[in-house]
Computed example of a mutant assay.
Amino acid sequence: MGLGGCIILIAVGAILTFATDWDMQGVNVNLVGLIFMIVGLIGVATFTSIYRRRRVVVPPATPVVDGQAPHHHHRDGYSDGYGV
C-alpha cells in the first residue's frame, strides 16, 4: 500500500468517526473509523521510514572516460618549464 492508500484510510476513518451518526446493529462505526485511522498512520510511518532508507546517496566511483584509465601527471619540477 502506498502513501496515497494510507492517506485515504485516514480520511475514510476520520469521516466514519467524526462525520457520521449511523447506528448499525453489531458494528461500531466509530471504532471501525478509529481502526482505519490507526492503520493509515502506521502505514504512513512505515512508508516514510522505508523511503528515507532508500534515499541514501552513494557517491559514484571515479569515472573512466572513453574506456581509458585516468592519466596521472608526473611533476618532477623540470617538465613544466620552471625548473630549468
Rank of each mutant, 00 (worst) to 15 (best):
I8T: 15
I7Q: 11
G13E: 01
D21N: 15
I8P: 01
Y51A: 15
G5V: 04
P60D: 05
S79M: 08
A45G: 12
H72E: 09
D80S: 12
G33F: 02
T46K: 14
T17A: 13
L3E: 11
L16R: 05
L16W: 05
L41D: 04
L31T: 12
T20C: 03
V12Y: 07
N30E: 09
P59W: 04
H71L: 14
A14L: 08
P60I: 08
V27D: 06
A61M: 05
V56Q: 13
V39N: 01
A61R: 10
T48F: 12
A61N: 06
R75H: 15
V32I: 14
P59Q: 03
G26D: 13
M24D: 08
W22D: 08
I10D: 00
Q68N: 14
I35C: 06
V65W: 12
V32L: 07
V29T: 03
P60L: 08
Y51G: 11
D66H: 07
S79P: 01
H71M: 14
V56R: 15
D66F: 08
A19F: 11
I42M: 08
T17D: 13
A11C: 10
H72V: 15
I8D: 10
Y82R: 11
V65A: 05
L16K: 07
I38S: 03
V57C: 04
I50M: 11
Y78G: 02
I42Y: 08
C6L: 00
F47S: 09
G67T: 01
V32C: 05
Q25Y: 10
N28W: 02
G33E: 03
A69W: 04
T62W: 09
L31R: 15
G43E: 00
V27W: 02
Y78K: 12
I38W: 05
Y51W: 09
Y82T: 10
P70I: 00
G43C: 03
T46H: 10
V32H: 01
A14M: 08
V32E: 04
D76C: 05
G83P: 01
L31D: 14
M24R: 15
G67A: 04
P60K: 08
T48K: 07
Y51N: 13
Y78S: 07
V27Y: 04
A19M: 09
G33M: 02
L3S: 07
H72A: 09
I10T: 09
L3Y: 08
V12S: 07
Y78N: 06
F36Y: 15
V12K: 15
R54Y: 04
Y51P: 04
P59M: 06
G13C: 00
G2W: 02
C6A: 13
A19C: 13
P70W: 03
W22F: 13
M37L: 07
M24V: 15
G13A: 00
R75D: 13
A19D: 07
N28P: 02
I10C: 07
H74N: 09
Q25M: 11
D21Y: 03
G33Y: 00
A45P: 02
F36M: 13
H71F: 14
I38R: 03
V44I: 11
G81Y: 00
A11S: 15
G81I: 00
V27I: 14
H73A: 13
V39K: 02
G2N: 14
F47Y: 15
A45K: 05
R55H: 10
A19S: 09
Y82K: 10
G5H: 02
R75N: 12
H74C: 09
G33V: 00
V39Y: 01
T62M: 14
T62G: 10
R52D: 12
T17R: 15
G13Q: 01
D80R: 07
Q25F: 13
N30V: 07
I38E: 03
